[in-house]
Amino acid sequence: MYFKRIKITELSTEKIESNVRLLSLRRHTSLDFKSASTYVAEPNKFFLGYENDRKIDLLRIITPFERLLPKIIVTFDKTNFQEYKLRLKLISMVSLILLTIGLIFNLVYSIQNGRLESDFGSIVIVNLIFYLLLFVEYKLVKRKMDLTLNWKE
Rank of each mutant, 00 (worst) to 15 (best):
M1S: 12
F3E: 09
K4D: 11
R5I: 14
R5N: 14
I6F: 10
K7N: 14
K7G: 02
I8P: 03
I8C: 11
S12Q: 12
S12H: 13
T13H: 15
E14V: 15
E14K: 13
I16R: 04
I16T: 12
I16E: 03
I16L: 06
E17N: 08
S18V: 05
V20T: 04
L22S: 14
L22K: 15
L25Y: 09
L25S: 10
L25E: 14
R27S: 10
H28I: 14
T29P: 00
L31G: 02
F33D: 12
S35K: 14
A36K: 00
A36D: 14
T38F: 04
A41F: 10
F46S: 07
F46I: 05
F46V: 05
F47I: 10
F47W: 04
F47M: 06
L48P: 01
G49I: 00
E51W: 06
D53E: 15
D53W: 01
R54Y: 11
K55Q: 11
K55Y: 12
L59Y: 05
R60V: 09
R60C: 08
R60G: 01
I61P: 02
I61D: 03
I62Q: 09
I62R: 12
I62W: 00
T63Y: 10
T63V: 13
F65P: 01
R67G: 13
R67I: 15
K71I: 07
V74R: 01
V74L: 05
F76Q: 01
D77A: 11
K78C: 03
K78M: 07
F81N: 06
F81S: 00
Q82A: 14
Q82K: 15
L86A: 06
L88H: 03
L90V: 12
L90A: 14
I91P: 00
I91K: 14
S92W: 03
M93K: 12
M93R: 12
V94D: 05
V94Q: 07
S95L: 09
S95R: 03
L98E: 00
L99M: 11
T100E: 02
I101Y: 04
L103M: 15
L103Q: 09
I104R: 02
I104P: 08
L107H: 07
L107I: 11
L107M: 08
I111N: 02
I111F: 13
I111R: 08
Q112L: 15
N113G: 08
N113V: 06
R115N: 09
L116R: 06
S118D: 13
S118W: 06
F120H: 07
F120E: 01
V124G: 06
I125P: 02
L128R: 08
L128T: 15
I129M: 12
F130Y: 15
Y131S: 09
Y131K: 10
L133D: 05
L134A: 08
V136G: 03
E137Y: 04
V141G: 03
M145G: 07
T148H: 03
T148I: 09
T148F: 04
L149G: 05
N150C: 00
K152H: 07
